[in-house]
Structure formats: C-alpha cells, structure tokens
C-alpha cells in the first residue's frame, strides 16, 4: 500500500474509525510499522480527530463551526431591523433621484457636451424684446444667464411657442442664484429653430411647496444655422 493509495482512498481516516476492510487494515498496518513518517501522519490525524471530538463534546466546536461573527451579526434581528430602515431610506432617496433623473432625461441634461455657449437673456418688462440665437449643434449646450431677484430658489421653464399654443420643453427647479445670476443649462438638441419663451418663477423657502411667483418671461428665437 503506497502513499498515493492511502491519500486517495482516505485510508488514514477510515482506519481511525475502523472502516477498512480486513485486507486493507493488514496492508496499512504493515505499511506504517516500518514507516515512521507514515506513523507520524496517523498519530497526528488521530490527535486531530480526538481533539475535534473533544471540542464537539464540550460544545466549543459550534463557535468555530458557526459563520464568522460578522455573518452572525448579519443574521441577527438587530441587523434585520437596521437593514430594513436603511433599505427604506435608500428606496426613498432613490425614488427622489429617479424623479430628478426623469426630469434630466427629458431635458437631456445628463448628456455629455462637446461645447457650451453662454446666452444672456435680459428681460425688458413691458417691451417685446426677443433674443435671437442660431440653432445649436446637437452636441452643444446652451446656458442661459438670467438676472435673479430676491427669491430663495427659482424655477425656469422653457416653452416652445406656436401661435398662441405653448409646449413645455423642459423645467429646471430648485435653482439658486449665484452672484445675482441664475444659470439654466439646455441641451442644444431641444432648441430647434422656432419661437420660445423662458418663464422664470421664484419662491421663498417658507412658502408652501407648490407656491411660485412668476416674475419674468423672456422671448427667444432660434434661427436656422447658416
């Protein structure tokens, strides 16, 4: 009986639990009688087996057998509660982001742009002043710069005008003024040649959520590219 046979057939373990056939047992015992190294292996395995059985008897093995502590914690009721709360918060937050993303998707603001053009829109109350711009490229972003007033936040809406009809193209909410200027980014692809209006509204933080005040409208005309 050689080492390979002993290893592949689990001879040591079967010997220790008395599960060898009579022929195997005789061959194995003759093998280890003259082989001190093999005898060491048998005795080490026996002590390992006895040690595991002793730990099993005293109940200490369950600690070692159990998953790691972090896995135990994952399986605990405390973790279940904490995870549920976290999941609920995450879902709520994700839902908020999802609404925002839908809005952005509609406006194409999540698009990557090759170039940006800044367009200042000035309101001339009482006048019928129209700002003309050439139709942007599809990979171009137009950033409208608008004068701010004394509101905490602003909402800008781009409307396409066809006669007396208005079609909402995009809305950007929760805008804040920086240096008395509000910047509104618009993807070039939504600005096809035609007439547009930019509606600007403002609100104070202590107002009800749905209350806005319209304070200016600016006319915009997008001209075909030459």
């Amino acid at each position: 009986m050689d080492r390979q046979y002993i290893r592949e057939h689990g001879v040591i373990e079967r010997y220790l639990r008395g599960a060898l056939t009579a022929d195997e047992e005789q061959a194995f015992e003759e093998a280890y009688l003259g082989d001190p190294d093999l005898l060491d292996q048998v005795q080490a395995a026996e002590r390992l087996r006895d040690g595991i059985k002793e730990l099993g008897r005293t109940g200490r093995l369950e600690q070692l057998r159990a998953p790691a502590r972090w896995r135990q914690w994952l399986a605990s009721p405390q973790y279940a509660v904490a995870a549920s709360v976290l999941l609920a918060v995450s879902l709520g937050f994700s839902a908020m982001l999802y609404v925002e993303n839908v809005d952005l998707r509609g406006t194409g603001l999540s698009q990557t742009f090759e170039r940006t053009r800044l367009v200042r829109l000035e309101a001339y109350r009482g006048n019928n002043n129209v700002t003309p711009i050439s139709a942007p490229e599809t990979d171009e972003r137009i950033v409208f710069a608008l004068d701010a007033v004394a509101y905490d936040t602003y909402r800008a809406t781009l409307l396409r005008r066809d006669g007396d009809q208005f079609e909402r193209i995009l809305t950007r909410a929760d805008l804040e003024a920086d240096d008395e200027t509000i910047l509104v980014g618009v993807p070039g692809r939504v600005l096809q040649p035609g007439a547009y209006e930019v509606l600007l509204e403002g609100r104070m933080n202590d107002w009800p959520a749905d209350r806005f005040e319209e304070f200016t409208r600016m006319d915009l005309r997008v001209l075909p590219r030459n």
Binding site: Q43, D50, G51, E54, L55, L64
Partner: peptide
Amino acid sequence: FDNVSREQDKRLVR
C-alpha cells in the same frame, strides 16, 4: 508528539 498534552491538542485544533 508524546509530550504534547491533550489539553494542548484542543487548543491546536481550535
């Protein structure tokens, strides 16, 4: 391994 006690065995197994 004769001078290794059974108590030591358990520690080594763990």
